[in-house]
């Protein structure tokens, strides 16, 4: 048996020695991202400017991306995780240190995105798009068109919205919004607080028409529902069709999430990946991505290239007095997650 293994190893060695140092020569970049989350024209320009061929593979959620890498799948050069997922990936040793803070274009990164809690000093990641999760409602449905800037409007809705509300089917977003309304921390692991959140959500449930994270822009834009727990970029698209739609940042706190570009361990084209990360911090490129996705970016100077409709939308270009309401999403521990999961399962059991 040992002889066979030795023989096999001996026959494999020369081929290893002959294999070229792939990273140095390859003109490829394997991007692992959502579909349509980067404008195809922008990627084509990157290819033209650098001669590097970009191949896109896709995933539908942070969690499925993480699960695939945890199970040993991979071979991608750049992934696009959201803040808390970055934290998990660093802890699990799934990311490569790229020292983003010392890249030439890093000087363009706006505060506070230059030093986030999930990646202190930006050792691993570069910021891409960011957004918030607030309440969208149709102002034509209420007298005077105005409602309070509070989560109360969503969780204890007035009769105009009762039965006409859509929630994101996203455990994290629903749970944290309820936690903010009740004055709890987003990472609460206290059973009695979980109980209160569950009671609130169960009371709200009959007022909810649908839990769904997909197609929210159309659901709101077509007037299928009159209120929606919503990501701001989706709101921007809905607003194009429904001019009376309004986005509010509830005063109790609003989730702030940011997607980032990172290089996973096992990447085959690390240098190309770094080049890409730096390239995406160029104001013009970042603005082009924003114009395509309808989400804001973290690059100073990109405003000049932004579509006026985005620049003037307070849902995307957050007014300064609303910034204090931001609550950056954190990676909560196991106890907090178990509590969320219990509440969520009981809500939908």
């Amino acid at each position: 048996m040992r002889r066979i293994i030795l023989a096999l190893a001996a026959s494999a060695l020369p081929s290893l020695a002959l294999a070229p140092p792939a990273a140095a020569q390859s003109k490829e970049l394997h991007l692992f991202n959502w579909s349509n989350y980067m404008p195809p024209d922008l990627l084509k320009r990157f290819e033209a400017e650098t001669g590097i061929k970009v191949t896109l593979d896709t995933y539908d959620t942070n969690e499925s991306m993480l699960a695939k890498l945890q199970a040993g799948g991979g071979g991608y050069d750049v992934v696009v995780p959201t803040g808390p997922t970055v934290q998990q990936m660093i802890r699990d040793g799934l990311l490569l240190k790229v020292d983003a803070a010392h890249m030439p274009n890093f000087k363009n990164v706006r505060k506070p995105f230059d030093n986030p809690d999930f990646d202190p000093g930006r050792a691993y990641t570069v910021p891409y798009m960011w957004g918030t999760t607030g309440i969208a409602y149709d102002s034509a449905k209420v007298p005077g068109g105005k409602i309070e800037d509070s989560w109360k409007e969503l969780f204890e809705p007035r009769k105009e919205f009762y039965g006409n509300i859509a929630m994101l089917k996203d455990m994290g977003e629903v749970f944290t919004a309820a936690a903010y309304y009740l004055g709890f921390d987003q990472c609460t692991s206290k059973p009695e607080e979980g109980q209160k959140i569950l009671e609130l959500l169960e009371k709200q449930k009959p007022a909810v028409k649908v839990y769904n994270a997909e197609g929210s822009a159309d659901r709101m834009g077509n007037g299928e529902v009159a209120m929606h727990l919503m990501w701001n970029g989706a709101f921007h698209r809905a607003h194009k069709k429904l001019k009376t739609a309004v986005y509010i940042y509830p005063r109790e706190g609003v989730n702030l999430w940011g997607d980032n570009l990172a290089v996973p361990k096992g990447a085959k084209n690390v240098e190309n990946a770094k080049l890409f990360l730096n390239w995406m911090m160029d104001p013009k490129n970042a603005a082009e991505a924003s114009n395509f996705t309808a989400y804001n970016n973290a690059i100073a100077g990109s405003d000049a290239y932004l579509d006026p409709s985005l620049r003037e939308d307070p849902a995307v270009n957050t007014p300064d007095d609303m910034v204090s309401r931001f609550r950056p999403l954190r990676d909560c521990g196991k106890a907090a997650l178990d509590l969320r999961q219990k509440v969520w399962t009981r809500l939908l059991r």
């Binding site: 394997h30 692992f32 991202n33 959502w34 579909s35 349509n36 989350y37 191949t55 896109l56 593979d57 896709t58 995933y59 539908d60 499925s64 699960a67 695939k68 199970a71 799948g73 991979g74 071979g75 991608y76 994270a213 997909e214 197609g215 822009a217 159309d218 970029g233 989706a234 698209r237 996705t293 309808a294």
Partner: peptide, 25 residues
Amino acid sequence: SYFVSGPGATTLPVYVFSMVRVGVT
């Protein structure tokens, strides 16, 4: 298809499901 594929092997259904972030066109 999603889990068992590697770089360059994304299939159409996976590609379509991954559009949910910004909407299916």
